[in-house]
Design a binder for these strands. Structure first.
Lengths: 255, 255
DNA sequence: GAGTGGTCTAGACCACACA
DNA sequence: GTGTGGTCTAGACCACTCT
């Protein structure tokens, strides 16, 4: 219980917030352990003498913090005793990947089909012998002379048809695949590594031999959890850095 | 208008979703331009012949997609004609920064006060002559012998008292500052660059001279938008890469 | 004071999960 | 069948903004 001042005092804040705080406090005190079921909405109506709407609003806040999750016909389960995922990435989200691609021209210089050998299969999280389409190109800032990146894109063989639509628009390739092949992008995993540029790359990028470079590998997974595209971007360190922002997302009051 | 099939057919989905889709469609068609005010909730009740609760649920969904935002006493403004920020970063969010720090020991080797010269002021987005606390140290994977990073942390002078609490616990420094100084972390800006390690750093990190390194600079801003900490981490490329995941967050149906 | 979105109640019906 | 959360209605009062 620990009804926490329901009697009369509005105490300045909405009732559903008081209910949410009371429930959160009971979760944190261990009265509702992680993994257990919360009392039903009807129970909370009785416990706090509020309407079901108010209880639902309180629970919705807690769900927004990732602390509980509801399931029809079953109940509401406690998922965490602390708010999770308080921060979201705002810049350099996927829409900014989109932005990046719009401001940057990709010139494809080579396209071929490849059969994955051991190294490539490891990189693409696939099997040896699997067929992929490979695009190799250079990215230029609109109007710039030196490329800002050397790009290699691998597209799973079954989505190769999307590549015929590339020239027309300067959209990201994953967008084209989504549209043409009817697949939905669900997740992008990104890995950033520092490397020493090999001589050929350094020459193409127009930097001194032995210069450092930033390698960004992005893997695109569909809603069916299938890896359908892998992009490898090699940037000259002196002309590229990777910026992202994590912003406080929500506490109980502001969602 | 463009009421889109309200008459009788439930069409399998909740009414508020149909309303949300209808409004979204009218936003995208330009009937409700970005920057303009949406009709009032009462209007939508009449337009779609639904209760206010249903209208509010529809608008709440659109707000969740970042397309509209409501203001008491004023109205609901159209913010975008497409859902924004469909993806959130799940791994390498701030809780994972936390995780990272817990798995890694930070050995402080030097602590001093510094007065910002021109270069440092630029790095710290501060003014020349400003006073900062500087901590220099090395990060080790628990039990490892070679450091995984050389770290320099700058803390604004007014928060220096927090640094006296470092030895006890292996929490991130920003957490200590939050707790000791009563400030709230609001935003972290992160910049990743590839560099060539200078000889001293390469030697300390135990890698060959001239090896590439990954430099990660994180700036911590308070709720008052004050920069209170800057962390600079220099990693050997061969032992460190930066991984993050962006996951599809929400469409109209699933939030 | 008029109008807005924010909160709240009391009631209802539904699809779903589970025994 | 029973109970759960999900949806929906009709009404009410409030704090707030703008004029």
């Amino acid at each position: 219980m620990s009804a926490s001042s329901l009697p009369g005092l509005p105490s300045g804040q909405p009732r559903y917030l008081m209910v949410a705080q009371a429930i959160m406090s009971d979760i944190q005190s261990g009265q509702y352990p992680v993994g257990s079921m919360l009392p039903t909405e009807a129970d909370f109506c009785r416990i706090y003498s509020v309407s079901r709407h108010t209880v639902r609003e309180a629970i919705r806040r807690l769900a927004g913090l990732g602390m509980v999750s509801a399931q029809v016909g079953v109940g509401t389960m406690v998922k965490a005793h602390q708010p999770v995922s308080r921060y979201v990435q705002t810049a350099e989200g996927i829409s900014d990947l989109f932005q990046y691609v719009r401001e940057v021209d990709l010139r494809i210089v080579k396209r071929q089909e490849v059969i994955a050998d051991k190294d490539l299969a490891a990189l693409l999280s696939g099997k040896v012998g699997q067929k992929w389409h490979a695009l190799m190109g250079e990215r230029y800032v609109s109007g710039g002379s030196d490329p800002i990146a050397l790009t290699t894109v691998y597209v799973a063989a079954s989505y190769g048809q999307a590549l015929d639509h590339i020239p027309g628009d300067s959209q990201p390739i994953y967008t084209i695949i989504e549209r043409v092949c009817g697949v939905t992008l669900q997740e992008v995993r990104q890995e950033i590594t520092a490397v020493t540029l090999d001589d050929a790359s350094a020459k193409t990028l127009g930097v001194a031999l032995g210069s450092p470079g930033l390698q960004v590998v992005r893997k695109y997974y569909s809603a069916r959890n299938e890896l359908f595209e892998v992009g490898i971007n090699l940037h000259p360190a002196e002309r590229f850095s990777h910026v992202s922002t994590l912003r406080l997302n929500g506490n109980l009051e502001t969602q």
